[in-house]
Write a protein that binds this DNA or RNA. Structure first.
Length: 933
DNA sequence: GACATCACG
DNA sequence: GACGTACGTGATGTCC
């Protein structure tokens, strides 16, 4: 055995870095035979194998070791109990894989070293120092910047990910100082990853500047009085102890007591007798074949475990679309024959064609029916005569169409027959159209909503998407029939011959989707969700949308004028301050004025290269300058004018004098509704000026608007789902939940609560619902990240169920590919195992979905039960805003409506779910929405 | 049509 | 150990 010395080359591999990279780079693989999580081990072995293959050249190492961390408590924790305190807990699936990576390293016949109570970095430092003193070369394979202090004198780093060598120059580039001064810079700058405090307000740039000026840290601290910048000077004087502590934390230990020597690390060839059985045990088929080939040995045989029984659902036999018969119904006799078929079957797929997308104004143009796949018809009713492409066409009706009333008279008994199921894709649309012609379509099934219950979160639920995914058929597109832009025509101007195949096919597709989805509902255990939360909501929403809400045009118009004046004034002021005129509404131009022309600090460019000028940025700037403050004012007024006072007026229906929004039932992944055309779920309320817009939403004379909203419903649901006794009790006692949280976290008695402490607790409470992160909370509260992390840690400590809920939810999502609400709604999380930043998004969404989704389910249940309860009263349900229902009620029935509606809402979870926390509903009333809310 | 911004729960 | 970060929506204006 040779002795380590000149000519030797030691490779030190940071094992923990390999593991984490492997873990995050690979999907969550499991061992087929027993389900043991194995992804990180697989990735680790791949990386080791690639390392071995890559290191055969003339520069090959003579000695090598993989170094691991061991134990979570090191001497640094004794120095500072917050050291690495904000590290995320190790993911559950990774934990059992850690010891296996040690076994793997040894199986490759590579030295594997760790030492209780020491970080891998310290062992690496000690070995690097020893090798350097012996006159050898060292390459540290890691991208951890803490190791950069070791570079120099024959020691280099290799960032394996970027395949980049880092020498003295590289360190200078990164830290602005040579390797031996790196610890000084780190001591000042601190490190948010390891939770090293450093000096507040000093980053790497400033730290390097100071160190280069004063030579080293000790000299700097001794002569801190000489620093010119007053704030910086004071920080260094005040924080001396903390800075010196930080240096001890980042300084690597070169005297780790090792029980082995460099000579023990000599490179050895792998022993196939050891390596192959290990790979076989892990069931790595591809990798073991590849390595066997390299080593020139036989690949081990790995038994194949039979896949679980085939659970694929048989799809019903259907004829191809090419063979489909799509008939045109032009007279009463043929319609009667279709009706006979419908009555025989007991179901029919229905689709309407109209002159537009707004059900409140569009006219019925034709109706499609389908009773079995491949057999559909279209009943044209008011198609216009005239040649295709004729710009004006003729207003005369085309020949060979039934009169609208004749067709509807025949169809009405069918559409209203309780024994005949009407199947539609987005049936709310068709039901609203028919309702305007005096037909109350029922009962219904809706393929869009079936898909929503089955596949929520996986993809959209429009007909084209569903047809392509589940029928492998692309429906005839509507675009070529209608054209685009200004020359677009309405469906009544589409020639009947073109309309028939398009329209009939839609009904055909709908029926096929229904036959496909129907058996899937119970297999996926979402029949109850579909039957209680989706299907019954269709007539309820259709009625609400048809009700509409009265909006006072004059009020809006007056506000618009006032806003216009205010904007003009602000605009003049802004141009004056800028010294030139520009478009205040252009973020691009504004950014250039602020950061290029005026030279303000803090200009950050987004991905398109333009400066960010969002509220956060402008609010920071507004403390020092008038221009950004005025721009914020202008933006607020501009938003109110364009989106609300102006646009809302265009949505007032001339026939009803009311605004009729449209709710999408299957739009939001969590089960929430979404409101469009116009969106009445985001009418301003948070600022006084904005709230006045709600004064334009009024009740008819003799009526009042009544608003009922759930109090803190998401936090209550969190308390139940995560099972947090303290939160549950606080709700039971009717305490101020944010104040209680604050009291618990910051040890402030409830009667000594300050608004600021309560505000922080409130932000944390909301943060938890959103899948909190230190960074996010820090940004929200505008506090240092470490402080925010401290709050979160404390919160988890006081309410341990929260962390368990988060971990369990993530685990459930990874295992099943979806999460569930208390009522069984599934929200799929296809990106939960993605790599990169998308995984973080998916995890937070998975944590939020059961909470937001359960709240959405609760109010859906309340809405479904509401109509029969208020049927005998002079009351109409108008709007839903996630946790609020708005009614228009005759003045003398207000109290009764509030009492009954409250009872329905507060009891909406029962009997399906018994919540540990009661649901509380607040009520308000008034002549307009501002007063009622 | 993409992007930035901002309104709501 | 690095990287980007609060969850869910819709409408508007600018700019290419």
């Amino acid at each position: 055995m040779s002795t380590f010395g000149k000519g030797c080359h030691l490779h030190l591999i940071d094992g923990s870095a390999y593991i984490f990279r492997a873990f995050h780079a690979l999907p969550p693989l499991t061992r087929k035979s027993d389900g043991l999580p194995i992804g990180a081990v697989a990735g680790f072995c791949n990386m080791i194998q690639r390392y071995v293959e890559d290191n055969h050249g003339p520069d090959a190492p003579t000695h090598v070791a993989v170094i691991f961390d061991k134990g979570s408590h090191t001497f640094r924790n004794d120095l500072y109990d917050q050291y690495k305190a904000n590290r995320e807990a190790m993911p559950e699936e990774l934990r059992p894989q850690i010891p296996l990576t040690r076994v793997a390293t040894e199986a490759f016949n590579i030295a594997c070293k760790e030492l209780e109570g020491y970080e891998a970095d310290d062992i690496i430092a000690t070995l690097a120092c020893q090798a350097r003193e012996a006159g050898g070369r060292v390459t540290i394979i890691s991208s951890d910047k803490d190791l950069m202090q070791l570079v120099g004198g024959g020691v280099e780093m290799l960032d394996a990910m970027k395949n980049r060598r880092i020498d003295r120059e590289g360190v200078m580039e990164k830290f602005g100082v040579p390797p031996e001064r790196v610890v000084d810079v780190q001591a000042l700058a601190g490190d948010s990853v390891d939770n090293v405090p450093g000096a507040p307000g000093i980053g790497i740039k400033t730290a390097a500047l100071l160190i280069n000026e004063f030579g080293d840290l000790e000299n700097l601290l001794d002569r801190a009085e000489e620093i010119k910048q007053p704030k910086r000077r004071q920080t260094l004087i005040d924080m001396r102890e903390q800075i010196e502590l930080s240096k001890k934390l980042v300084q690597l230990d070169c005297d780790t007591p090792l029980d082995f020597s460099l000579d023990d690390l000599e490179v050895r060839d792998p022993d196939p007798e050891v390596l192959m059985p290990f790979l076989a045990e892990m069931e790595f088929r591809t990798l073991s074949r590849r390595i066997a080939e390299k080593l020139g040995v036989e690949a081990p045989v790995i038994a194949d475990v039979p896949a679980p029984a085939d659970t694929a659902v048989e799809t019903p036999e259907m004829p191809s679309f090419d063979a489909a018969v799509h008939e045109c119904v032009r007279d009463a006799d043929s319609l009667r024959s279709w009706i006979a078929q419908i009555e025989e079957r007991g179901w029919v797929a229905v689709d309407t064609e109209t002159t537009g997308l707004n059900e409140m104004t569009a006219d019925l143009v034709g109706i499609s029916l389908c009773v079995e796949p491949g057999h559909a018809c279209y009943i044209p009713l008011i198609h216009k005569a005239g040649a295709t492409g004729d710009l004006f066409g003729s207003d005369d009706l085309a020949e060979g169409q039934m009169a609208v009333q004749d067709a509807l008279d025949l169809l009405k008994p069918v559409l209203e027959d309780p024994a005949i199921l009407k199947i539609g894709q987005n049936m709310k649309y068709d039901a609203k159209i028919f309702a305007r012609y005096g037909i109350d379509v029922a009962p219904i099934d809706d393929t869009m909503l079936m898909s929503y219950a089955l596949h929520g979160g996986l993809h959209g639920h429009g007909m084209d998407t569903l047809s392509e995914r589940y029928l492998a058929h692309t429906p005839i597109p509507i675009k070529p029939l209608l054209g685009t832009g200004k020359s677009a025509i309405t469906f009544d101007r589409v020639p009947i011959d073109d309309a028939v195949p398009y329209a009939a096919e839609d009904a055909d597709v709908t029926l096929r989707l229904w036959q496909t989805f129907k058996p899937l509902l119970h297999r996926s255990r979402v029949t109850t969700v579909y039957e209680t939360l989706e299907r019954p909501l269709v007539p309820v929403l259709a009625q609400m949308e048809r009700n509409g809400i009265k909006v006072d045009r004059d009020t809006l118009s007056r506000m618009s004028n006032a806003f216009a004046q205010k904007m003009a004034g602000l605009e003049a002021e802004i141009h004056e301050l800028a010294g030139e005129s520009f478009n205040v509404g252009s973020p691009k131009q504004l950014g250039e004025i602020l950061f290029d022309k005026m030279g303000l600090e803090g200009g950050k460019r987004g991905k398109t290269g333009a400066y960010a000028t969002g509220v956060d940025v402008l609010e920071d700037l507004a403390t020092e300058h008038d221009l950004p403050a005025r721009v914020l004012d202008w933006r607020q007024v501009s938003k109110l004018k364009s989106t609300y006072t102006d646009a809302l007026q265009t949505h007032i229906n001339p026939d009803t004098g009311r605004v009729h929004t449209s709710y999408s039932i299957a739009g939001a992944s969590t089960g929430r509704l979404a409101s469009t055309d116009p969106n009445l779920q985001n009418i301003p309320v948070r600022t006084e000026e904005g709230r006045r817009i709600r004064e334009a939403f009024v009740a008819e004379p003799g009526n009042l608007l009544v608003s009922l909203d759930y109090s803190q419903i998401e936090l209550r649901i969190l308390a139940h789902i995560a099972d947090i006794p303290a939160l549950k009790q606080a709700f039971a006692e009717g305490l101020d939940i944010h104040a209680m949280t604050a009291s618990e976290m910051f040890d402030v008695p409830m009667d000594k609560m300050t608004p600021d402490v309560r505000r922080k607790a409130k932000a944390i409470n909301f943060g938890v619902i959103y899948g909190i992160s230190g960074f996010g909370l820090a940004r929200n509260l505008r506090i240092p990240r470490a402080e925010a992390q401290g709050f979160i840690d404390r919160y988890f400590e006081r309410f341990p169920g929260i962390r368990a809920y988060m971990d369990d939810t993530k685990g459930f999502a990874r295992e099943h590919g979806y999460v569930e609400t208390l009522f069984g709604r599934r929200i799929h999380t296809p990106e939960i195992s993605a790599k990169g930043p998308r995984a973080g998004f998916a995890q937070r969404a998975a944590i939020n979905a059961p909470i937001q989704g359960t709240a959405a389910d609760v109010i859906r249940r309340a809405m479904v039960r509401m109509p029969p309860v208020i049927e005998d009263l002079n009351a109409k349900m108008l709007l839903q805003v996630h946790d609020e229902l708005l009614f228009e009620v005759a003045e003398d029935t207000v109290d009764e409506v509030i009492a009954r509606a409250r009872e329905v809402m507060e009891g909406a979870a029962h009997p399906a779910v018994r919540l540990d926390v009661k649901l509380t509903v607040d009520a308000g009333q008034g002549a307009n929405w501002a007063e009622a809310h």
